[in-house]
Simulated assay, not measured.
Amino acid sequence: MWLISKKTILFASLFFLISCKNDPPQTLRIAINPWPGYEVLHLAKEKGFFEQTGLNIELVRVASLADTQRVYLNNKVDGLTSTLIEAIQIQSFAVRPLTIALITDYSLGGDAIIAHKSITGITDLKGKTVGTEVSSLGIYVLQRGLQKHNLSLDDVTIKNVEQMSGIKEMNKGDISAFVTYPPISTELLKNPDYHVVFDSAKIPQEVVDIVSISQSYLKQHPETLEKLWQVWQLSYEFIQTHPDEAMTKMAKLEGLEVADFSDAFNNLEMQTGDTQAELISHDFLKSVTEQVCGTLWRIKSIDKPCGFVPSMFHKPLEQSK
C-alpha cells in the first residue's frame, strides 16, 4: 500500500506541475471606451495578435472616459484606456496606483467643442451653458479653449453631461456647446446647425491617448509591457498593409460609416509599438504630463499638487534597484 501511495503521490505531483506549466497566463482586463485610436486593441484581438504574443486579455467595453475611470477605481479591471487627464486624476487619488503602459496616439483635432452656429467662436460662449464630463478630458479641453481666448471656466456655466447624453442635450437646447469626441462628435456634426469652435489641433500633443495598467498587476506580470508593445506594433503594421480591412472592422465597432471613421482616424497621430520604450521614458512626455497636471491642479480637478507624477512612469528593473 505504501509503495502504491508513493507512486500515486509522485504521479499526482508531476501532473500538477505539467498542468501549471500549461495554464494560460492570468487574464489582463482592460476597460476601453469608444475612440478611433483605442479600436486598434479590438482589431488586435480579432486578428489574434494578443494570443500570438502570449498575452491573455479581455477588453471590457464601457461608454465613456469617465466610465473607464469608474470601473478601474472600483477594481473591476486591471487597466484602462484614457487620456493623460484621467490617468493623472486616478494617480492623485492614491487608491490604485497605475503605470502608463502604452501611448496609442496624439489627438490632432478629434477632441472638440461643438456649438450651435449662432455661436461663431469661443468668445461667444461667455455667459452660456456648456456641457462636458467634468471628471475627465472634457473639462480640460474646455479650460484650454477658453484660456486661449482670455476666458476662464468662471465665464461659462458648466453642466455635467455624459457623452451618450450630449446629442440629446444639444438638440433640446439645454446646452449651447458640448465637449466631445468620435463617435459622438461625428454624429453631432451631421446636423448642419452645429460646428466646431475649438479642437485639440489647437493644443498639439497635450491630449495624449494612453493605456495604463495597475502597478500591482505589472509587479506580478512584468513581461506585460513588452508583450503589449509587440501587439501594438503588429496591429500598426496590419493597418499599414491592410488599411481597407482594418478601417472596416474598426468602423463597425464605433458604429460609424467607414469614410467617417477613416476621417476621425486621420485626426490622430498614431504611435508605433517599436518606439514605446523610448516614448514613455522620454522627458517630453514627462514634461507634458507635468503641464497637464498643473492645469488640473489650478482648476481644482485634482485635490493635490503634482508631486506624484513621476510615479506614473515605468522604471526598468535595472533602474529601480
Rank of each mutant, 00 (worst) to 15 (best):
W2K: 13
S5R: 14
K6W: 12
F15Q: 08
F15M: 13
L17Q: 04
C20N: 14
K21T: 13
P25E: 09
Q26V: 13
R29Y: 08
A31D: 00
G37T: 05
Y38H: 15
E39S: 14
V40P: 02
V40A: 10
L41C: 05
H42T: 05
E51L: 10
I57N: 06
L59D: 05
L65E: 15
L80A: 12
T81P: 01
T81G: 11
E86M: 08
R96W: 02
T99N: 12
S107H: 01
G109S: 00
D111R: 05
T123I: 11
T123V: 10
T123R: 09
V130C: 03
G131E: 10
E133S: 10
I139R: 10
L146V: 00
K148C: 01
N150K: 13
L153Y: 03
V156F: 02
Q163I: 09
M164T: 07
S165N: 13
S176V: 02
V179L: 00
T180L: 03
P182R: 04
P183Y: 02
E187C: 03
L188V: 11
V207Q: 07
D209Y: 11
V211F: 00
I213V: 15
Q215C: 09
P222T: 12
E223A: 11
K227L: 09
Q233T: 05
L234Q: 10
P243W: 02
D244M: 05
K249D: 04
A251Q: 07
E254F: 05
E257Q: 13
F261Y: 15
F261R: 01
S262I: 00
S262C: 02
D263L: 14
A264I: 02
N266H: 14
M270T: 08
D274A: 13
D274F: 05
T275Q: 12
I280M: 07
K286A: 03
Q291G: 03
Q291K: 14
C293A: 06
T295Y: 01
R298E: 14
K300T: 02
C306P: 01
F308S: 05
P310G: 06
F313L: 07
